[in-house]
Design a protein around this nucleic acid. Sequence first.
DNA 1: TTTATATTTGACCAGTTGGTCAAAGTGAGG
DNA 2: CCTCACTTTGACCAACTGGTCAAATATAAA
Lengths: 202, 202
Amino acid sequence: MNKPETRIQKKNQSAILAAGLKVFSQYGFHGSTLDKIADEAGLSKPNMLYYFSSKDAIYKALLARLLESWLEPVTHIDPAGDPVEELVNYAKLKLTMSQHYPNESRLFANEIIQGAPQIGDVLRGELRTVIDQLAHVIDGWVSAGRIQPVDPYHLVFSIWSMTQHYADFDVQVRAILGDRDPMAGAEMHIENMLRRMLTPEP
Amino acid sequence: MNKPETRIQKKNQSAILAAGLKVFSQYGFHGSTLDKIADEAGLSKPNMLYYFSSKDAIYKALLARLLESWLEPVTHIDPAGDPVEELVNYAKLKLTMSQHYPNESRLFANEIIQGAPQIGDVLRGELRTVIDQLAHVIDGWVSAGRIQPVDPYHLVFSIWSMTQHYADFDVQVRAILGDRDPMAGAEMHIENMLRRMLTPEP
DNA sequence: TTTATATTTGACCAGTTGGTCAAAGTGAGG
DNA sequence: CCTCACTTTGACCAACTGGTCAAATATAAA
């Protein structure tokens, strides 16, 4: 089925995806041009189109790769683990991703803000399924009195929003914090927030 | 200095701004076209350019108007009031703004994600000043033991992110919640989160 | 070396976009 | 009714954009 990829194919495809990520995440889909991406990838435009048939194809390939790494960590939350630690760890992982892969986060944010024209169906399908399952786990923890009462869906939203904020709104964060490092305080704050929110009262 | 505006000028300028807001917030600056905006405003393209000299001018006018309504509520936080209530009320106000003016929120988000090319200086100037003052007030509350210890800057970030999330990521929120109304649960969750975070322990 | 295949490129194109301009139309005060 | 400033428009343009294509070049296997 899959034709064997040559060395050159591998190199160029990953160069194009890296360039596409950089450009798309900064300028959005419409603001990005094939010339800019090709230049960033170190290829001529026709040569780039030899590997990806269109601008859309590059964008879709990026989103597909992104969605995988987006959904995967959620499934690692262990229903049998300590609830507060599981959720705090998930939040910390998301924050680390915002720190190390801010362009991925911005690419995703751009897509969602503009109405998710490409991945709307995935959101309403896979994503919803995964989050429904997680919500069920969290509800179980609440029922067992292992965390304070909480709406599981909005809890997830608040974890996503607080962590992704540091990637998507990086410019604003840095404008306000000046020289101070955002991530140091961010991790402590978010952990604090979740612990005080969730830890059952004695 | 200011020439008196005619009835027609008022009507057309506000029509253009309304149309620009709608289009820019959905497609981003680059993805928006003058034709689309003019069409939405019910004017011909040259006629629209008679009132705003360029695409950039419309965008800048929108951002200027937006920044005002963005900064103003922060200054309403009363250092003499009850700390928890003041902060909870601010968060509720931001959430209400996300609910009633989602396009403004998305316009702002688009601008920030793309590196704030137009309003970077305002962020590092006015915004930072205002937030520095707020941070000072919050620090005072912490010192007085009226709220639990908290990093004031990251507290503000978390309020912004959690509330704006419901406007900027509306599509994702609705994809997950399905028919359920987002805002009902959102307000209660955010209020809960802040109260548990801030209310001093007895 | 030969050969078949994979890769790269310059020239090109049609559609779109932001913006211009001269000319025509409109409205309110005299 | 007249006038003069304000408003509106159709025709137009240069720059840019996504994408094509035939020809040239590099590569790997035989």
